[in-house]
Design a protein around this nucleic acid. Structure first.
Lengths: 245, 245
DNA sequence: GTTTGTGAAATATTTCACAGCG
DNA sequence: CGCTGTGAAATATTTCACAAAC
C-alpha cells in the first residue's frame, strides 16, 4: 500500500505485474480465459506455447492475444513462444489472484446455494466465508460446513472477517438494499445475479450476470437464423480441436 | 435438420419486426435489459417512457438507447416518448420471444439443479423440458416434477420433444462431448457453463457463462484500486447506476 | 416547451502485415 | 527459419449535438 504513481511497484517473487493499472476492459475480460487455458496446458505437461496455439485454445485471434500480453508487460521469446508457468503466474498477478479473496453470498435460494457449493470458486482462490439470507427458514442451515446467518449480521461480518467481494443472489426486489449494505460496510466489488441494475457510488465495481438474458440472446440468433450465421461470442468456427492442443 | 429458410416471418400482434436480421451484437446484448425495464415500468402502470428515463433504468446512455431502438425499427413520439407496451412487444418480437423455447439442461450437479429450478427461465418464456445426466446416482431423480434422464436419451429427446436450446452444466471434461451430441441432433443454440471453449460448426450459436471468470474480473478491479485522481471522466457522480465492463 | 432520430465525431477494439529477434 | 511485438488500417461502438416533429 505504499506505492503511489507508478514508478516503483513492489515485485512479488516470480514475475508480477509492473504496470497494469488501466488495461482495456476487453483485455481484462480475456485474461481469466487465458489463465484457464494455461492451466490446462500446464497439466498436460506443456512448457511452452505459441500465441497461435494459446489463441486457438481460448477462441481469439493470435494477434490480439499477443497485443493483450504485451500490454500487460508479459513477454515471450521470439521463435519459441511463451513459457506456460511464467505467463500463468504473471497473469494471476495482474488479476490480483496472488492473495485469496474473501467472498460473501447474500441470498441462498436455489441459485445462491448452488453458488455456495460451486467448486470453481475455491479452486480459483475465492474463499466463500459468509452466507447470509433474510428468510428465517434458511438462516441456520448448514451448507458444506458454512452456516447461513441473518443478513442483519452482514455489515459486522464484512468488517470483522475481511470480506471484500459480495455476491448478490437475492430476488430483484431485495438486491438494491443488499448492495447498499455491502457498500456501506466498505465492499467495493459486487457480483450481481439479480435481474436489476444496481446504483452504487463511484469506485464500486459491479458485474452483472443474468441467466435469462443469455437465453434471450440465444433466442435472437435462433429466431434470425440465416446461412452463414453471426458470431455470438468468440468461438472457433468450423471444426477445431476444442481445448488443449 | 436445421431448417434453413424462414421465409414467412410470423406476424406478431402489434408490430412485428420487419428488418432486424443483422443488428450490432452490442445492441442485441442490451435488448433483454430494455425488455426487463419495460416490464417493470408496465407493472408500475406507466404508459409512456422517455429515452432518458428508460436509459437510466438500464444503465446506458440515452442516445445509445435511441439509436438501438431506431435500428430495430421501433419508434417513439417526439416530445412524448415511447409507448411502454408497444415497445416491449416489439422488442420481444425481435428477440423471438413470441413463441416459447424448449430447453434441455445437461449436467445436474449443484449448478444444473439450480438452473433447473431457476424461476427466471419459465417466467420469460423458456420451458425446461428435459434434464439429462450421465451419473446413475442422479438419473431418475425428480426435480420440480421433471425426471432426470440418462444422457444417452438426449438425441432422441431433442428430436421428439422439439428441444431447441441446450444448456451445458457439466464438468469441463464432458462439455465438448455433450455439445457434439446437441449439434448432431440439430440444436443450434447452446448456453455453456462449463469452463472451456467449445468447438462447434458455423451456424451454431454458443454463449458462455463462467462464474469464476466474473469473480476474477472483479479481483482485477479490487487489486488495482488506487489513485483516483488520474482520469476524471466527465460526469461527477455521487451514485451512479452501472456495471463495470 | 419536450423528446426523438440521426449524421458526424470521438473512442474502443480487432485485424492486418511485417520488421526484427532468437 | 518461426514467432513475437507493434505500428497502422479496418471495424465496431459510444457519445455528441442539433434539426425536426410533436
Amino acid at each position: 500500500m505504499t506505492t503511489t504513481g507508478e514508478g516503483t511497484d513492489q515485485q512479488v517473487p516470480s514475475g508480477p505485474p509492473a504496470t497494469a493499472a488501466d488495461l482495456p476492459a476487453a483485455t481484462v475480460r480475456r485474461l481469466p480465459e487465458y489463465l484457464r487455458a494455461l492451466g490446462a496446458l500446464s497439466e498436460s505437461g506443456v512448457e511452452t506455447v505459441s500465441s497461435e496455439t494459446l489463441a486457438a485454445a481460448t477462441g481469439v485471434n493470435s494477434a490480439m492475444l499477443r497485443k493483450d500480453l504485451s500490454q500487460l508487460g508479459a513477454s515471450g521469446m521470439r521463435g519459441v513462444g511463451y513459457n506456460v508457468g511464467t505467463l500463468a503466474a504473471y497473469i494471476a498477478g495482474v488479476l490480483g489472484l496472488t492473495k485469496d479473496s474473501r467472498v460473501a453470498i447474500i441470498g441462498l435460494g436455489h441459485l445462491g446455494q448452488a453458488l455456495a457449493r460451486y467448486p470453481g470458486f475455491s479452486e480459483r482462490g475465492f474463499d466463500i466465508v459468509g452466507l447470509f439470507d433474510a428468510d428465517p427458514g434458511i438462516i441456520g442451515k448448514d451448507l458444506d460446513g458454512i452456516r447461513v446467518r441473518d443478513v442483519a449480521l452482514l455489515a459486522g461480518a464484512i468488517r470483522d472477517e475481511g470480506i471484500n467481494i459480495g455476491v448478490i443472489a437475492t430476488p430483484g426486489a431485495a438486491a438494491q438494499h443488499v448492495a447498499d449494505l455491502l457498500v456501506d460496510a466498505g465492499v467495493t466489488s459486487i457480483l450481481n445475479f439479480a435481474p436489476c441494475v444496481l446504483a452504487v457510488p463511484q469506485g464500486v465495481a459491479v458485474r452483472k450476470v443474468d441467466l435469462a438474458v443469455e437465453l434471450q440472446i440465444l433466442s435472437f440468433h435462433e429466431h434470425h437464423k440465416t446461412i452463414g450465421q453471426a458470431t455470438p461470442t468468440r468461438q472457433p468456427k468450423g471444426r477445431e480441436t476444442g481445448t488443449v492442443k
